[in-house]
Amino acid sequence: MKQNSQDKNSEDIVEINDLYFSRGTRIIFDGVNLKVKRGKITAVLGPSGAGKTTLLRLIGGQIYPGAGTVKVEGKNIPDLSRDELYQVRRRMGMLFQSGALFSDLNVFENVAFPLREHTLLPDTMIRDLVLMKLQAVGLRGARDLMPSQLSGGMARRVALARALALDPALIMFDEPFAGQDPITMGVLVKLIRLLNDLLNMTTIIVSHDVNETLTIADYVYVIAEGKIIGSGTPQKLVENATGWVKQFIEGLPDGPVPFHYPAVDYTIDLLGISA
């Protein structure tokens, strides 16, 4: 018990050690070590298909690692029973790339959903709480709209309000900036930073939008090909970037990741001389 309470107050809310994960013959993670500090915004950058979403699903216990530990608040997720896992998940919020709002419920009911499922609060109190969460993301006036009537950015803000409904300790964002216009992007960046600091939460962002992510993150990990290939504060990461990390952060078309898909020699190919 004492051990448990120590873990709850330790500095790292998420601790991943020697994580190994594969899909079929494809290795997604090959010995990943990663720590998320309490109260900070930690970003995980990487190219598409690097397993960023997979990482969030591993933390949420939706999939299990092949080897290694994934500890959230000191508890190793793969060891938990179904009920314990659902208990831990109530302390987490996750924002999916699409928002994942329930299409048969309106905005108000979407945000009220976790409250209705997990608490026995009376309707009047649920109403107050929902309006407070919606006010925080600036959409109190949109409470009666259906998800199909929302723009992509609004849907993400509603999803954010819903993720905040149970006041989670940890909130995870899957590509929060992908495909958003500059205004929405600005709103989201501001909201993520503000809510993290005001509500004393811990935030994990996975993204490939380098600039936005670097402006709000406190600590950044870069993953590619199953390994962490760079980490540090945004400033240090930019200053010390070399090779792959440099190409990724600066968005260079050619470098360690070649522009051309491997092929036979161009001249030989054009002249039709078979190899």
Binding site: Y86, G93, H118
Partner: peptide, 18 residues
Amino acid sequence: GLMKISEQLSSMEMMGVD
């Protein structure tokens, strides 16, 4: 199926609802 594609089922799981 559409709920699954739009990650509604996953997000429900992540909210601790089966």
